[in-house]
Simulated scan of single mutants.
Amino acid sequence: MDMQHVADKGLVLLGCGKMGSAMLAGWLERDLPPASVWVIDPKPSDWLKGTGVHLNADLPERPAIVLIAVKPQMMGEALPTIAAMGGGGTLFVSVAAGTPIEAFEAAFGSDSPIIRAMPNTPAAVGRGITAIVGNDEVSGDQMDLAEALLKAVGQVVRLEGEHQMDAVTGVSGSGPAYVFHMIECMAQAGEAEGLSPELAMQLAQATVAGAGALAEAADETPAQLRENVTSPNGTTQAGLEVLMDEDTGLPPLMKATVKAAADRSKELRRG
């Protein structure tokens, strides 16, 4: 099963907000024909209207794949529009946060192949990372297809089981917000040391973005990269002694942050 199969059978995108739009843009750039895509969205953007896809039109009976990208609170009214496609070989992929596979099995039938995916917001600029896991009905080819589609917005990793989704939520799902806050805090600290707000923010944004790009591109581990720029008794060491304090620094704070997000994910899942 490959992209040609998708082009032949059709792809249905349920919901086309920021995440749906980012994915659709990536697919179209990778030469998926607009005529092979059906989008259901109550408030289509001007960009979406200009793509040439089928918009809020009658759906194919047995598309290759249905990608569910509606907000969780919209799920109840959205799923009935595609429920009839269950059990017919159509692959369902959900990028809706918090909705477990069993909820889709209840809607489409347990004989339907269903993949749950957790992307994150850097997908909007093609730098996301998405974790995926499927039910027992999903074939190897279908996992490969979902991975190929989701690579349009960044990296893809496969989980051992759905139980890991809460931890993924705590690290990469919610994680961009932690980094955004770190940028805010670095800029405020720069202001406190005498920089203008504009300059402090520019320095903080570029430093975090550049360090992230270097960490991803380098052969060394982040720990080694940190050591490379830490001269004995230098400025970096002075800063790190505060940041790396095992009682008051970043290690216990980040552990507590990720745990709090993962715990809330578990609470929401239990309802």
Rank of each mutant, 00 (worst) to 15 (best):
V168C: 00
M201H: 14
M186C: 03
V171I: 15
A204G: 00
E198K: 11
M182D: 04
Q188T: 11
T207Q: 01
M186G: 01
P197G: 08
I183M: 10
V171F: 05
A189K: 07
A204T: 02
I183G: 00
G210I: 11
G190E: 12
S172D: 04
S174M: 08
H181D: 06
C185G: 06
G212S: 06
V171N: 00
A204H: 00
P176V: 10
L195F: 14
S196T: 14
T207H: 02
M201P: 01
G173L: 09
M182W: 08
E216G: 06
G170H: 02
A187I: 10
S196L: 11
G173H: 06
L214C: 09
Q202L: 12
Q205D: 05
A209Q: 15
G194K: 09
E216T: 14
G210N: 09
D219Q: 14
M186Y: 06
A211V: 12
G194R: 10
D219Y: 06
D166G: 02
G175C: 06
G190P: 08
P197N: 09
A192N: 09
A209K: 15
A218W: 08
A213L: 14
Q205P: 01
L195E: 10
G173E: 04
L195P: 04
A192V: 07
G175L: 05
A209G: 08
L195T: 11
F180Y: 15
A213D: 13
T169G: 00
E198A: 15
A215D: 11
A217G: 07
G190N: 11
G190D: 12
E198S: 14
A213I: 08
Y178G: 02
V208T: 05
S174Y: 07
A217H: 14
A192P: 06
A177F: 07
D166N: 08
V168G: 00
E193M: 14
I183E: 02
G175P: 04
